[in-house]
Write a protein that binds this DNA or RNA. Structure first.
Length: 573
RNA sequence: GAUUCGUUAGCUCAGCUGGUAGAGCAUCUGCCUUUUAAGCAGAGGGUCCCGGGUUCGAGCCCCGGACGAAUCACCA
């Protein structure tokens, strides 16, 4: 492994610590009695507090001024300044602990624990005056150095590739990132509390499914060896939650990781989280109310207000949200009344609106296409779009006033779908017929049409009470609530292409070829970056170049002989 | 999948029409006992993403590839 200069210096420091009898990775518990943020928050009001404090964290910056030093320590709650004074760290004559251990063997990034008392410096900063410190972990890689003054960030660590691949570094160095994920947890906790307060049961259902149902999407496929069958990672959990409603629970919900084998974008990650809920004896009107109440509560909980800044927009989650049927939405945004139109008429409308169509599209797909192309993005404020055509919604009950439509809503926020809900289809005869229509669509070339799940049909043939169900995209909700424009910012570890493994020739590779270890380490530096170059060069030229390098760098090794080089090349060839 | 942009020191980034690779921070060596993007003086650190090509000469030009970003396509 080729180490950078700074990495090598840190490894050397680790060895020095060991020589001094200091374990840089001690096993014992380190008892902490305060957090940085608590000290910063409370000390001003009562300066008698924290006079015997013990905290631990990572060194984020150091300012050494001879026999005194300031450094910044970061723990899970935030940062606080530490003050080290040589003659207090080292009470006796031996100043090793300060001069050597602290000043030379500690680095930015190391994790230490300190004991001391809190005071306020001349510059007015709350600071821990350290009387004793303990090395808890030596860091062997230099962190990116980010500085800040008057709210301005210098040398920010911003490269998305590195930030996502090395999220741990991102979290250390960019404090806003930590906050986003704390907010994500609060969104989920608020939602869970809201649902538990209503008495609904949190459940878990299979992620590995033999029939991927509940949504129109391409699944990931895997294989179970013992059963010798294909299994799919779920694209949704809808059909399992409904089975539980059949089983007699009044309300069930699940925070579910779902998996879709489709394109990636700043709105799509192959694995993502949805919360799905099903409640018996309710319809989609009831569900709209529940959904808007829940989201209003989340916004208030997180921001103290229903108004949330998202990009250039302020989105107001004050209930009630606007409600609009999809046909009215199309009328409003395109001027076309597509109610009762057949396929030919809809294709005509699409042509006028410059929307591409193909022959596999039915009435429902065409209407969805028009809405998606011309309307969806304009719904910035929360809006329930309702009453979608029946053929796009095979699991949804027909509309009570119009059998061509369904009792379905999607919640649009900031021009994107956030939630999707139905009055669930519980008529087993109709459900079977709808699955069969899906099969026809599949035969016509729709590769996302749903498969028939016979066991699900069996379940609802026993009788599923009238039920309303809703699914809400947690990642997109968190994006909105934390004002992030990319899903990668709200997932700790977004999917990335595997990191390219750099094929680098190292001195070890040369040693393996029988080249003496003392020369192997200099070959790369002397202008032979890989074996191919070595092969192409004449033996005498190699000899001259290496011995020239030896002389120039005053190396304390014997000059290389032409005979040695011929031996190397013999092994290579 | 398409188009555009990017990839140079540990980090953030310069690098003109092709002529021996630069800055700030970080690192190292000194000095400095309340500093705070600490300061002052000095030093070291590079397979310019990879592979070909053109050229006397390529970080820069040409071709191919890897990875990332944005936009589009796909995507309930």
């Amino acid at each position: 492994m080729q180490l950078s200069e700074q990495e090598q210096i840190r490894r050397n420091a680790l060895q020095e610590l060991n020589k001094l009898g200091i374990n840089a990775y001690p096993p014992e518990e380190y008892k902490v009695n305060a957090l940085a943020a608590d000290i910063s928050n409370n000390f001003h009001s009562d300066e008698t507090l924290y006079q015997d404090v013990c905290i631990a964290g990572r060194i984020m910056s150091r300012r050494i001024m001879g026999a005194a030093s300031f450094l910044e320590l970061m723990d899970s709650s935030g940062r606080i300044q530490l003050y080290f004074k040589r003659d207090e760290i080292c009470q006796g004559e031996d100043k090793t602990l300060y001069n050597i251990v602290f000043k030379r063997l500690l680095d930015i990034g190391d994790i230490i624990g300190v004991k001391g008392f809190v005071f306020i410096t001349k510059m007015g900063e709350i600071t821990v005056h350290v009387k004793e410190f303990t090395i808890l972990t030596k860091s062997l890689r230099p962190l990116p150095i980010v500085k800040e003054k008057d709210g301005e960030i210098y040398d920010a660590f911003t490269d998305p590739d590195q930030r996502y691949r090395q999220r741990y570094v991102d979290l250390i160095v960019n404090e806003d990132v930590k906050d986003t994920f704390v907010k994500r947890a609060r969104v989920i906790r608020t939602m869970r509390d809201f649902l538990n307060d209503k008495g609904y049961l949190e459940v878990e259902t299979p992620i590995l499914q033999s029939i991927p149902g509940g949504a129109a999407a391409k699944p990931f496929i895997t294989h179970h060896n013992a059963l010798n069958i294909p299994l799919y990672l779920r694209v949704a959990n809808e059909l399992y939650l409904k089975r539980l409603i059949v089983g007699g629970y009044d309300g069930v919900y699940e925070f579910a990781k779902d998996f879709r084998n489709e394109g990636m974008s700043r709105f799509h990650n192959p694995e993502f989280t949805q919360m799905e809920i099903y409640v018996a004896y309710k319809d989609y009107f009831w569900m709209m109310e529940m959904t808007e109440n829940m989201i209003e509560k989340i916004a208030t909980e997180l921001h103290g207000t229903t108004k949330v800044q998202v990009g250039d927009n302020i989105i107001d989650f004050k209930t009630p949200f606007r409600r609009l049927s999809i046909l009215d939405a199309i009328k409003e945004h395109t001027g076309f009344d597509v109610n009762d139109m057949n396929v030919a008429q809809l294709v005509e409308v699409c042509k006028k609106l410059e929307i591409e169509t193909d022959s596999s599209m039915g009435v429902g797909k065409l209407i969805d296409e028009i809405f998606g192309e011309k309307c969806e993005s304009s719904f910035i404020q929360p809006t329930f779009i309702t009453d979608y055509p029946v053929e796009m919604s095979p699991l949804c009950k027909r509309h009570r006033d119009n059998p061509e439509l369904t009792e379905r809503f999607e919640l649009m926020v900031n021009g994107k779908e956030l939630a999707n809900a139905y009055t669930e289809l519980n008529d087993p005869i109709d459900q079977r017929a709808r699955f069969e229509e899906q099969m026809e669509l599949a035969a016509a070339g729709d590769d996302e049409a749903m498969l028939i799940d016979q066991d699900f049909l069996r379940a609802i043939e026993y009788g599923m009470p009238p039920t309303s169900g809703m699914g809400i995209g947690i990642d997109r909700l968190v994006m909105i609530m934390t004002n992030q424009s990319s899903i990668q910012e709200v997932l700790f570890f977004p999917q990335m292409r595997p990191e390219a493994v750099k094929k680098v020739t190292t001195s070890d590779d040369y040693i393996k070829l029988g080249i003496s270890s003392e020369w192997a380490e200099y070959l790369i530096l002397a202008g032979f970056p890989n074996i191919e170059v070595l092969k192409k060069t004449k033996p005498s030229a190699i000899e001259q170049k290496l011995n020239g390098f030896r002389k120039k760098n005053k190396l304390d090794i014997a000059p290389v002989q032409l005979e040695d080089i011929n031996n190397w090349l013999a092994i290579i060839n």
